[in-house]
Computed example of a mutant assay.
Amino acid sequence: MAHVLVLGGTAEARRLAGELAGLPGVRTTTSLAGRVARPRMPVGEVRIGGFGGAAGLADWLGAQGVTAVVDATHPFAGTISAGAAEAAGLTGVPLIALRRSGWTAGPGDRWLPVDSLAGAAALLPSLGGRVFLSTGRLGLAAFADLDELWFLVRTVDRPRPPLPRQAEILLERGPFSVPDERELLLRHRIEVLVTKDSGGDATAGKLVAARELGLPVVMVRRPPPPAGVTTVPDIAGVVRWLSGLPGFPGFPGSAGSFEADKCP
């Protein structure tokens, strides 16, 4: 039996697990890092917690007879993705990365791209005194010394210190509509938005609202995937890739050419 390990935590990972569930000859296990207190659970087998680095993951792949790995983690989960690439190299288990497309600035957008949260923090004092910080609960220490600014920090789970001294914490989980995001920005008199280029529709409403209100958006660029890892933007690409592996059964609707990007 083919055994697929899905490194999950995203909506795409949950949909992929559902796509693979019940297919004859395929066992699917979704791995969640355990960083979210109440994760949305996929169908099928689920494993929660780390593997103990690349070596631990390699041992697990061998012990569980994994025949393919799909890295469907968040685009900014660089440590997990690097560990998956290393483990795949150690074991020879095929690996593919599922990465939703990033956002693209359009007419009227005032985006300021940066490479890190530290780079975003360096820009803020010149952009406005009231900041909507929508970058997740990790890495907020980059903004902790900006005492003169006020922050609205939105996360799924409560973040841990260090945090900005002037901060209101908003615990919410998307998706968020454009009208709701516009009302949020107006109610808190936000002057600048900081976010990561996560892509997808669930949290894109804030970008539309910022455009409508003429607000600058500090956009943290994605880190590149590990070198040599094949990357596809959708579940259909993953299914086509799996269908082409030795020992995997055919998948309904998987016909068609396989197109993917491979990072240099």
Rank of each mutant, 00 (worst) to 15 (best):
Leu16Gly: 07
Ala255Leu: 09
Pro159Tyr: 04
Gly174Met: 05
Arg187Val: 02
Met1Arg: 15
Leu193Ser: 02
Arg222Leu: 02
Leu20Glu: 11
Ala72Asn: 09
Asp147Ser: 15
Gly9Met: 04
Arg15Met: 09
Ala122Trp: 10
Gly18Trp: 02
Ala68Asn: 13
Leu20His: 10
Arg158Leu: 14
Ala120Asn: 08
Gly56Trp: 08
Ala63His: 10
Gly129Val: 03
Phe258Ala: 14
Ser254Thr: 04
Pro161Cys: 07
Gly53Ser: 04
Ala144Ile: 14
Gly247Asp: 15
Asp59Lys: 14
Val43Phe: 04
Glu183Asn: 07
Pro24Val: 02
Leu5Gln: 14
Pro225Cys: 03
Leu124Tyr: 04
Arg14Gly: 05
Arg38Gln: 15
Thr91Arg: 06
Pro175Ile: 01
Asp180Met: 13
Leu32Gln: 13
Val238Asp: 08
Ala63Glu: 12
Ser257Arg: 01
Leu61Trp: 03
Gly205His: 09
Gly18Asp: 11
Thr195Phe: 01
Ala210Gln: 03
Ala144Ser: 14
Gly49Met: 11
Val66Tyr: 15
Val36Asp: 12
Gly89Glu: 15
Gly52Leu: 09
Ala142Tyr: 05
Pro252Ala: 15
Gly62Ala: 10
Ala202Arg: 07
His3Ser: 06
Asp197Thr: 00
Arg130Trp: 10
Val46Gly: 12
Pro249Thr: 03
Ala227Gln: 06
Arg14Gln: 10
Pro94Tyr: 07
Glu148Pro: 01
Leu61Phe: 03
Ser254Met: 02
Asp180Ala: 13
Arg211Ser: 04
Val239Lys: 06
Pro75Lys: 07
Gly256Asn: 05
Gly106Leu: 01
Arg110Ile: 03
Leu90Asn: 03
Thr73Trp: 05
Arg38Met: 08
Ala97Thr: 14
Pro162Tyr: 11
Gly52Cys: 07
Leu32Ile: 14
Pro223Asp: 00
Arg130His: 14
Val69Met: 13
Gly128Cys: 05
Asp71Met: 05
Leu140Met: 09
Leu57Asp: 00
Ala210Glu: 01
Leu152Tyr: 06
Val239His: 10
Leu146Ser: 13
Ala97Asp: 11
Asp197Tyr: 00
Phe258Leu: 15
Pro39Tyr: 13
Asp145Gln: 11
Glu183Gly: 05
Leu98Trp: 12
Gly25Glu: 14
Arg40Lys: 11
Gly50Ser: 05
Ala167Glu: 02
Thr91Ile: 07
Leu213Asp: 09
Gly89Thr: 06
Arg15Trp: 05
Glu181Trp: 07
Lys206Glu: 00
Pro224Phe: 03
Trp150Phe: 11
Leu7Phe: 14
Gly139Val: 01
Gly34Ala: 15
Ile80Gly: 03
Asp71Asn: 13
Thr195Ser: 02
Ala21Arg: 08
Pro225Ala: 03
Gly214Trp: 03
Pro24Lys: 04
Gly247Thr: 13
Glu12Ser: 08
Pro125Val: 10
Thr67Trp: 02
Lys262Ala: 12
Gly83Met: 00
Val192Pro: 06
Pro162Ala: 00
Gly8Glu: 14
Asp59Phe: 11
Asp261His: 11
Gly174Ile: 04
Ala63Lys: 12
Gly25His: 09
Arg15Asn: 04
Ala105Lys: 07
Met219Gln: 00
Pro161Gln: 06
Phe151Gly: 07
Ala122Cys: 11
Asp109Tyr: 03
Leu95Asp: 06
Phe51Val: 08
Pro113Asn: 01
Glu148Lys: 02
